[in-house]
Design a binder for these strands. Structure first.
Length: 896
DNA sequence: CACTCCCGCCAATTA
DNA sequence: TAATTGGCGGGAGTG
């Protein structure tokens, strides 16, 4: 075609043609020179009109490449033009003469014509979707670049993304092997699995734990050698060269692309907003996520999105949030890939054959020296692929990194962890976003703005004893476990979050996994084992996250079940200690655990219409449980500030700090609500705390979650459960009776307003002290106490307390029940009571003022699924509903 | 003005 | 050292 066009074009820029040809052939370069010059000359003339043209000319003069490029481009144009219709008649071209316009058009094909997406389509058009297995098509970068009339750089953009999906693999220098979509479904499946793992990890829980720990350790220490990795490596293949590899390669586009896809696959809604994705993808360590960085990430996402769009896997959509509409992408590719290729695949049997190979390996994870985790690609993934041939070629260099790359694997633990983090981040964001508004509708939430998330949990072991377990929630636990990882991961989310105050909540899990609560600190009461979580927990995610599929549910369920016992113990001792088992000693966990899961994405998704569907799905209950999970995860505390320091060492100061910040931002003091909640009944959750019954492992412990929690952090609440959001307290049931817990304000306070880092300290401290003392005391009793106040929940009430409550409650209940079955988390039983007294009482966080709190609280959470919000508005409810649905879904699954 | 995202500099990797 | 890859971000096009 080009040629053809060219002929047309010829008149204009005959010279160009020549160069082009040359360009195609690498060897030829020398020739180019001669030619190019000519070209230049020609060009100028045509372009004179446009300012840019001049610039280009200058540039071209400067660099030959440019010239070639342009030439190429021009070649293309015709095609493009034809598509668009712009193309002026040939006559015009020639004639062009003066009409600047015409030429103009010619020369500048409109940006769209040059878009990466279009280029990708052209690229894809060159190769069959399902090539015969026998033939292997090799792709020469130079050739393609020249034929498409673009610089190589652009081809790399395309190829890198395709490579991440295993549509192509790199065989050698400048040589790629085209595999087509035979393996696409497998790849997607793998990606989905990975994504889920992060959340759910059930399957690999053990491994995960290890990984997490491992990772965790690494992050902290960095020094940790590969050995640790090994464990992980199981999944992946041995191949991976240990950590060595990661370099730049691992970075970006490829990985980013995979992660991006994972987000879609994990998301219930299948819609991911750019900002959320960007946040998630920003692994960075902490906070500092500069704005610039974010921007860069977004740019890359656009690049990736363009390619994915060309592949027909996603499409651009807009999510409207409160703030306005945000750009987002919806997954329109296959969702279920069960076995292998599905739809996508189509024909070739070959693909089927391949399957086995790929899957296995998923991810490995390596850590980087830096402590960050990276993904490594493993050949494993691809091995099976068609690429083999290619490999053979390459074979000589089996180990070369590049090859690995090609093979790529997707995942790795790291990815997972990252994902989790991301998710967390997303959640936070979402929360934040949502928090702000009550939002309603459709949009989901993403928040972009805040990138912060917080996860602030802190744990305080009061007594120091062992018990603090974190995992109150089964699921949560799970996550928690992960959490460890999260912490790592957190960096992303957390860190970012940290930096940003606003989001506290974050933790949650998506899928059902629990996440940690981010910021909440736990308190341990000496006497028995009680734990309080402060900060926000978020349930958020819980509900939302769930991944759509049953898998999630399972996971969650598993998680729940497993978690407590296993998870906790296993993972990190730190984190959780099972009741029976005391924590490790050490520090507990403090640190640890912050994991979050990422659900965010999911949440984001939320589709619209919430309003209409008032009800959430049926499975709300599950949500609860899930929610719970979430929270739990986190543990640590970190109070940055100090206070807590005493207790623990917070390992992660950062987080803490961040958390604090978040808290501040959001803040909400928990107090806001001070109601007590009870669980059993259905009371509205509103209450800030939820009581969870211990389940298996925890049997002895009760958990209380505050719904409110920190506003920010908690915001999660949004999710669904009000309760979730908050911090949890675990109390041994028996113990409870005797203990008074205080919650509240403290929590909130820290979260909220507090200006500075205090947060953590506050939290922790407050926890113990202030909250108890000053603020309202919470009582926990074995019996359930309901607090009178419940109703009070001020803000909520008015609206419809009932509804919300109902919703929640039912859900909760269900979930609880469900959960209970499985796991401990249920509400109710025993009772708990917490009362927080009124806000007033909670002077600590005056700022937060209850009212405000509530609102804020509501809002934010609401977006997520804040209960309150729901209550308030039905509209919200609807929204919530959506979230609820998610929850439900999750929950439903979870029960399993 | 915000969203997109092209373009290409230039560093990291490879050959 | 040269070439290949590809991160990255300025800033332009689009709506």
């Amino acid at each position: 075609e080009n040629i053809f066009d060219r002929s047309r074009m010829a008149p204009k820029t005959p010279i160009k043609n020549e160069p082009i040809d040359l360009s195609k052939q690498k060897g030829c370069t020398p020739e180019r020179n001669p030619i190019t010059p000519v070209k230049i000359i020609d060009r100028p003339q045509p372009d004179p009109w446009t300012p840019t043209a001049n610039l280009k000319m200058l540039v071209s003069a400067a660099s030959p490449d440019m010239r070639d490029r342009e030439k190429k481009k021009e070649l293309f144009r015709p095609i493009e033009n034809s598509e668009q219709s712009d193309t002026p008649d040939s006559s015009q071209y020639d004639i062009v003469d003066d009409s600047t316009v015409d030429e103009f058009e010619k020369q500048r094909p409109s940006r769209k014509q040059k878009s990466l997406g279009l280029l990708c389509q052209k690229f894809l058009a060159r190769y069959p979707n399902y090539p015969l297995s026998t033939e292997k098509t090799t792709i020469s970068l130079d050739e393609v670049a020249s034929s498409l009339g673009v610089e190589r750089r652009r081809i790399y953009d395309i190829v890198n993304v395709l490579e991440s999906l295993h549509l192509v693999s790199r065989v050698a220098k400048n040589q790629y092997c085209w595999h087509g979509r035979h393996n696409l479904s497998q790849t997607l499946k793998m990606l989905q699995e990975e994504g889920e793992l992060q959340y759910g990890e059930l399957m690999t829980s053990q491994h995960k734990e290890q990984y997490l720990e491992y990772k965790f350790g690494e992050q902290k220490k960095e020094t940790i050698p590969d050995s640790q990795d090994r464990p992980l490596s199981e999944f992946s293949e041995p191949d991976c060269t240990s950590a060595s590899a990661n370099s730049r390669k691992d970075k970006s586009l490829r990985i980013m692309s995979q992660k991006f896809v994972m987000l879609f696959l994990v998301s219930k809604t299948k819609i991911v907003t750019l900002d959320v994705a960007a946040k998630i993808l920003i692994e960075e360590t902490q906070d500092t996520v500069d704005h610039s960085k974010f921007k860069t990430k977004v740019r890359r996402l656009y690049d990736i999105a363009n390619v994915l769009t060309s592949l027909g896997l996603i499409k651009k959509v807009h999510v409207t949030e409160e703030r306005g509409r945000k750009p987002a992408f919806k997954w329109i590719g296959p969702v279920e890939f069960t076995g292998k290729t599905d739809e996508l695949r189509g024909h070739s049997p070959t693909s089927d054959a391949l399957p086995g190979t790929q899957t296995g390996a998923c991810a490995q994870y390596q850590t980087s020296a830096t402590g960050k985790q990276r993904f490594t690609r493993h050949a494993s993934f691809n091995r099976a692929q068609p690429c083999e041939a290619a490999r053979r070629k390459v074979s000589s260099e089996p180990n070369s990194p590049r090859q690995e790359r090609q093979a790529c694997t997707v995942n790795s633990d790291e990815n997972c962890s990252k994902m989790i983090n991301l998710a967390a981040v997303c959640r936070q964001k979402i929360e934040e976003d949502t928090g702000n508004k009550a939002c309603d509708t459709e949009t989901i939430l993403n928040s972009s703005e805040n990138s912060n998330i917080t996860l602030p949990f802190s744990l305080l072991p009061v007594p120091g004893d062992t018990d603090f377990c974190v995992n109150p929630l089964p699921q949560a636990v799970f996550p928690v476990v992960h959490a460890d990882v999260p912490s790592f991961s957190l960096p992303v989310g957390i860190s970012s979050q940290a930096s940003h105050p606003s989001t506290p909540a974050a933790s949650k899990t998506e899928n059902g996994k629990p996440t940690l609560v981010p910021n909440q600190p736990f308190l341990c009461f000496p006497s028995s084992s009680l734990f309080m979580l402060c900060g926000g927990l978020q349930e958020n995610n819980l509900s939302e996250t769930l991944p759509a599929s049953g898998d999630v549910g399972h996971r969650s369920a598993e998680a729940q079940a497993a978690v407590p016992p296993t998870g906790c113990q296993k993972r990190s001792s730190r984190k959780c200690s099972s009741p029976s088992a005391p924590v490790d000693d050490e520090e507990p966990a403090a640190k640890k655990q912050t994991l979050e899961q990422s659900d965010l994405p999911l949440s984001l998704v939320v589709p619209k219409n919430p309003s209409e569907s008032p009800k959430p799905e049926p499975s709300p209950g599950s949500g609860c449980s899930s929610a719970v999970h979430l929270e739990t995860n986190c543990l640590d505390l970190a109070s940055p500030a100090a206070a807590e320091a005493a207790n623990k060492e917070s390992t992660k100061p950062l987080d803490c700090q961040e958390q604090e910040k978040q808290n501040k931002d959001t803040d909400e003091p928990a107090s806001g609500n001070e109601h007590i909640s009870k669980e059993n009944a259905n009371q509205p959750f509103q209450p800030q705390y939820l009581y969870v019954q211990p389940t298996a492992g925890l049997s002895s412990f009760n958990f209380l979650f505050s719904a409110n929690q920190a506003p920010g952090a908690i915001s999660l609440a949004a999710n669904q459960l009000p309760s979730l959001s908050v911090p949890c307290v675990m109390v041994p049931s028996a113990a409870l009776a005797s203990f008074p817990l205080v919650c509240s304000p403290s929590f909130t306070s820290p979260l909220s307003p507090v200006p500075d880092g205090s947060f953590s300290a506050a939290a922790s401290t407050s926890f113990s002290m202030s909250s108890l003392a000053s603020t309202t005391p919470v009582f926990i009793s074995t019996t359930a106490v309901v607090t009178p106040k419940v109703a009070p929940a001020p803000s909520v009430d008015p609206q419809q307390p009932a509804h919300p409550a109902l919703h929640l409650s039912p859900v909760l209940t269900r979930s609880c029940s469900a959960v209970k079955l499985d796991s401990p988390v249920c509400m109710g039983h025993p009772v708990t009571l917490l009362k927080l007294q009124q806000p007033s009482s909670a002077p600590l966080t005056p700022k937060s003022i209850r009212p405000a709190h509530h609102e804020a609280f509501f809002k934010t959470p609401g977006s997520l699924g804040d209960p309150v919000a729901w209550k308030k508005n039905e509209g919200n409810q609807t929204r919530n509903a959506s979230s609820v649905q998610r929850r439900l879904e999750i929950s439903s699954t979870s029960p399993d």
